[in-house]
């Protein structure tokens, strides 16, 4: 039976291996096997976030973006630049998702930077302000 490691250590091992040039698919198999063996499959999402966090310390950040329509390449570049400047990152990966319910604007979620400037959020804020 495998030794139970903390999520942070698992993430650090995973990132170090990738940065060392190990194959991602093999690493993913190892991670899956480890989680199954230690019965920690429910922690997969948390470990993923920890991996992203550790990556951010190595200058690689993943930005989650939600918009009402597809982003143009200009906006993608602008967002990448913004994240690079704010977080001093070397590489920025954008994970964009289209959700028409946000009506417009952008929601940006990245380690150390969170922005929700969607129209639906503005309306919700406005509604909360006008509630007695």
């Amino acid at each position: 039976m495998a030794i139970r490691l903390s999520r942070r250590k698992v993430a650090q091992y995973f990132v170090k291996a990738i940065l060392a040039g190990k194959q991602t698919s093999q690493l993913l198999h190892e991670l899956a096997a480890y989680l199954l063996d230690t019965k920690r499959t429910k922690e997969l999402e948390l470990i993923t976030r920890d991996i992203e966090y550790v990556f951010s310390h190595h200058g690689v950040v993943v930005a989650d973006i939600v918009t009402a329509s597809e982003l143009t390449s200009a906006l993608r570049q602008a967002i990448s630049k913004l994240v690079r400047d704010r977080l001093d990152a070397k590489t920025v990966e954008l994970r964009a998702r289209v959700e028409p319910t946000v009506l417009g604007g952008i929601k940006l979620d990245v380690a150390g930077l969170r922005l929700d400037d969607t129209l639906s959020h503005r309306l919700t804020t406005l509604r909360a302000q006008h509630k007695i």
Binding site: A68, S69, T72, L75, I79, L82, I106, D117
Partner: peptide
């Protein structure tokens, strides 16, 4: 309009 809003936000 959405692009303009996003640009303003950024």
């Amino acid at each position: 309009i959405d692009n303009k809003v996003i640009t303003e936000s950024l």
